[in-house]
Design a protein around this nucleic acid. Sequence first.
DNA 1: CTTTCTGCTTACCGACTGGTAAGCGAGTGT
DNA 2: ACACTCGCTTACCAGTCGGTAAGCAGAAAG
Lengths: 234, 234
Amino acid sequence: MVAQRPARPPRPTDDVRPRALAAATRLFAARGFEGASLQDVAGEVGVTKQALLYHFASKEELRRAVLGAMVTHWNEALPRVLLAASAADDRFDAVVGELLRFFASDPDRARLLVRHLLDRPAESRELIASHVKGYVAAISSYIARGRERGTHRADVDPEAYVAAVLQLLVVGVASLPVLDVVLDGPRAKAAPRVIAELRRIARVALFPAEAPAPAPRRPTRTRSTARTARRGDP
Amino acid sequence: MVAQRPARPPRPTDDVRPRALAAATRLFAARGFEGASLQDVAGEVGVTKQALLYHFASKEELRRAVLGAMVTHWNEALPRVLLAASAADDRFDAVVGELLRFFASDPDRARLLVRHLLDRPAESRELIASHVKGYVAAISSYIARGRERGTHRADVDPEAYVAAVLQLLVVGVASLPVLDVVLDGPRAKAAPRVIAELRRIARVALFPAEAPAPAPRRPTRTRSTARTARRGDP
DNA sequence: CTTTCTGCTTACCGACTGGTAAGCGAGTGT
DNA sequence: ACACTCGCTTACCAGTCGGTAAGCAGAAAG
């Protein structure tokens, strides 16, 4: 009577594939694609190399799957993020803030992306053209309109600006564990300081001066910037 | 009876070492340390792998030599750059401009640095602490003084700012061959557009608004900004 | 001449790489 | 009972990796 075989009816231990993707993401991000072997990935998952090769026909396919999972994750999360941000009063701060939390929530994906850019520029161009360019075009056209209205700086180059800011956020997050060396304060506070500065740089590069006076003690407008303004130690 | 062995008296074909360093720099930057084999490097130099291993006892030592050559090159060139810049009227624009030209003049070194940050965070921290932190501290204390005087923005976090801008310049240059995908204009003009925008972002994130009106058509003060301000196509 | 050193080359090496082939136990369908 | 597929495991492979050992041509020193 059971005529349907929908997708994956009785898969008891089918969780090795997602776990392999997670482990591969971590290892490829940490050591690079060439630096992490199939045995390393298999070892972290707790299976043999051949079990891995059963799920992914080749290492190259594992790579594609890892990258595919990354863009899938982003394509699912980003529209929600951008929509939520566009509802807020200060769209830009919300978008940048969400992007930062987004990348910072798993730096491995940011590192993976940077490595991919370095390892495979040609494939990266395709990936960007098919999955990133749309976002960039939307945001930059929005910026261009704001520029015409005078709500955004007149000297901004929208597309280049978005590209630069995206880059800044991604590698800022990717290199957080190294960046704190140049900061003087307590190392624990380094990450939020850098992130706050990234937000500030992105913001002031887009908006005209809100206060002509040089010392705006008041957080200007949003309450999220209030947290940004404080800096710690004497 | 020969007591003197000065340094390297008669070395006819001793140029394999510098050529190997150049080739290794290129290959490590392009494929990563694990992705480029000793044979690859040797092949590019035109010698055998064992000839390479004669000059560099191990691949790891080749890596150290490549990185050492990079920091040596920078330590020789940077002070000259910074001094020349500090003589100019608009110090900041000059410094950023020189840094950009500096990194853009050989993107391989920028890529190599980014890869090193990803591959060996711990060693990168040491390298930064010993060779970069000094520059950052000097520039950021200079910025901090400017901030007190009101010539720099009050909300800037000097150290975090310098770290972020350095990062922006380095990876901006490293990822130039990929970035142009998101730009609409002619691909040939992409690099200068992105670089101009990087300069603009770094500048406006540091200096207070020069004109309270939203449309500053006049270059306000320096003549180098006049060149920066122009954007190409309609 | 002989000795000694440099800058290689040839010949190997074991470890490990990604990948293939075949088998096999457990569950399922008929 | 049977065949069949799934999800592996064991066994094995050729190729490449970084690295070692020894020899060898040539120049320099005695």
